[in-house]
Design a protein around this nucleic acid. Structure first.
Lengths: 133, 133
DNA sequence: TGACTTATTGCAACTGATTTGCAATAATTC
DNA sequence: GAATTATTGCAAATCAGTTGCAATAAGTCA
């Protein structure tokens, strides 16, 4: 967190109360803006939706947060941890599980096969979790 | 196509003129609803946006079409061909390129590591295409 | 500390994507 | 060809996300 406030300041941003609270509400699991908002509300913290969007945009640009879409109408945001991982999304109960996978293999293959300069990638698995099978 | 009309009938659906035209407009590259609509319009075929949405929903449910999202506000739809492939999406010009990748390796690993029953997956690469580098 | 600069907030209004309700239409069935 | 009912097109609604702007507050510096 201290790290994050450093990055914010360095890039000419301000560490406001709202940003601190939004950062505290972020998890390493993907959450929608509405989920973040109600998580904050349950702690009696009311922050405008617009502010949450703008804060997340900012954090995504700074590489602190990742934005993902699971073929749903809304985007999800998750705190970028140290470890690169992927998601298992249950198509029935929408539960999300992380899974660490070594995908260097694929990245290298893409580099070999194309002249595309890869900056990032997403790898998501959809199916049934233990409970929903 | 004949195959598709068979599937439609078998599942209690009707092969309308609109559906035939939408099917003809579909490609193996992901297109948005608006793109499909203007592709049809350029052939002087006017189909309501709602109808396109409903037709695509139907085709997705029948496994004929795949719906993807590339971290954009709108969804893209592509005809499911025989060959499983992935996408390279240019973050500058939005061009999409297909790439065949053997990911059995990853699928097997997921099966080993978890008790999740995988039904499908998405693997997308984002970066710069040849022209935008 | 207190004044100053300017990034950030909250509200309202807006845009764009997608969905829903419903009456009119047209594909299949018999 | 008539009957049944899935499908269409239109209008209106909803949902996610964005934009404009005046009021506020974080960081800066004397």
């Amino acid at each position: 967190m201290t790290n994050v406030s450093h990055i914010l300041r360095k890039t000419g941003h301000r560490l406001t109360k709202q940003r601190q609270q939004i950062l505290r509400a972020l998890t390493c699991r993907p959450q929608s803006v509405e989920e973040i908002k109600s998580a904050l509300l349950s702690q009696r913290i009311a922050i405008d939706t617009t502010t949450i969007y703008r804060t997340l945009d900012c954090l995504v640009k700074l590489g602190i947060v990742a934005k993902t879409r699971f073929n749903e109408h809304n985007a999800k945001y998750e705190l970028l941890g140290k470890t690169h991982h992927h998601h298992l999304v249950c198509t029935t109960c929408s539960a999300v599980k992380d899974i660490p996978l070594d995908d260097d293999f694929l990245m290298k293959k893409v580099k070999k096969l194309t002249n595309f300069h890869v900056q990032s990638h997403t790898l998501e698995f959809f199916g049934l979790c233990k409970h929903c099978q």
